[in-house]
Every structure is written in C-alpha cells, then in structure tokens.
Nucleic acid binder design. Structure first.
Lengths: 115, 115
DNA sequence: AGAATAGCTTTTTATTGCAAAGTACTTTTT
DNA sequence: AAAAAGTACTTTGCAATAAAAAGCTATTCT
C-alpha cells in the first residue's frame, strides 16, 4: 500500500496545469479589466470551441468570471480573474517554480551523458 | 480558421508536462545510473500501476530506457534517461521557465484586486 | 434572397490518468 | 507440503477531458 506521501508535484493542480489554460490564466493575470473572447482567442492561439470549453472549466472552478454583454448589436464575452482565482493561480505558480528549480538542479548536476 | 500561431505554451509537451511524469523525469535527471522501479515509486509517491504506465509512455517516446534484470532471484527494472530524453527535457524546462516568468510578471503587474 | 462572416456553444471523438485486478514468482508460516 | 503472504511488476477498465467537429444565431455583403 503506497501511502500518499507529500510530493510537491501534487500541488500542480490540473485546472491550471493544462497548457492552454495556463496561457489563458497568464493572459488574464495581466489584464485587470479582463479580456474579450476574441482577444483571448488570438493571444492563446485557440479555436473558438476550445477557448469556450476551457473558459467554462475555469468558470466552473470559480477561477474566472465571465460576463456577457452586447456592444451595439454584437455579443461580447469578457473574462476576468476572480480574486480567488488569482490567489490560487499564484499558489500554483509558486509550486511550479519549486518543481522547475528542482528539475533544473537535477539535470544540471549530471554530465550530458557518457558511454 | 485559427492559424497555428507560435505561442510558447505549445512547447509544453504533454509527455513531460503531466505532473507525475515531470516527477519521474526530475528524479531520473538527477540519477545518472538510473533509478529502480521501487525507488521511483517511493520518490514520486506513485502506485505500481501508475508508475508502470508512465514509464511505458516515456519509453515509447524514447525519453527513458528501461532495463530488466535479475538480482539474485528477484526481478529488477531500472530506468535511465536517454540522451535524447535528457535533451528534450531540458528544452521543456526552458519553455516552462519562460512561461512561468511571463505568468509571474503578469500577475505581479496587477494590483491584488479592487472594487 | 442567399452566401459568407462573426461570435459563440454544444456534441462527438479520442486520449489518458488512475485505480484495481491480475500475473508470476519467492518467501514465510502452519 | 500446502497455504498464505509478500514482491515486483503489468494489464484492464473506467471516468475525466482536451481537441475537433458541428451547431446555433445574428449580421453583413452581393
């Protein structure tokens, strides 16, 4: 029976760890006023369907807040980070940094390979 | 049609980006002589089944080399990084670092939330 | 009017992380 | 000697989900 040991990698919550969501979160982290669907799609190089899906996941986790409005006749969806989402993202980033440093140390401690 | 733009997050290859495999790769990166199945299982806090599966994935991708031998009467599986695996892992780590720095910059440039 | 485009959402498909069960042994224990 | 309990893995099966495809709905172009 493998007891659940405390390994730092466990802190890499999937909700943020997925590359595309990491991109979305990063884009939103730098935009206090939020980002429109279209901007995010461009910034993260995502298809409409994927962006929609990822945003919904992030919204369900209450990491982002989605607002739908009309600008003139056109619909506009705007995503912003929630306070909680920002907080949790920072925790994730710290965990990521630790993991990255450990990995970097490990790989640098070894010679590039021999015989 | 969303053209495949060059976004750094694309470099976060899934093969390494999965938390448990990241743990495995990091452990192996620090062990030029390789790690036994049992050691890895302990170091990464994985169940037998999961470790087996992840190792197979890494082996299929030729990122690790698996050697099976008998020590006395007992079987022993030893995993080592391949040169190519090490190389690709370093590329992944560099991408991860860039992504992390971008995210950290973004989140620090914004106030902890208002209104 | 009909076709194309914009801005999304929903559904389908394919992958895969993970737990549980299985295999093939060896080493006790009774 | 037979049964029970380990050890060291592998295989199977399912539930979650990322990505692709298909669907809206409304507007603008021709």
């Amino acid at each position: 029976m493998t007891s659940k040991k405390q390994v730092p990698y466990a802190a890499l919550k999937r909700i943020f760890h997925e590359p595309n969501r990491l991109a979305i979160m990063s884009a939103l982290a730098g935009a206090s006023k939020g980002c429109s669907f279209t901007d995010l799609r461009g910034a993260c190089a995502l298809t409409d369907g994927n962006l929609s899906r990822h945003l919904k996941v992030l919204e369900e986790e209450k990491a982002v807040h989605i607002e739908k409005a009309f600008v003139g006749v056109k619909p506009r969806t705007t995503a912003t980070l929630t306070d909680d989402g920002r907080q949790r993202f920072m925790v994730y980033l710290q965990a990521l940094e630790e993991v990255l440093q450990a990995a970097t140390r490990a790989i640098q401690s070894e010679p590039p390979a021999t015989a």
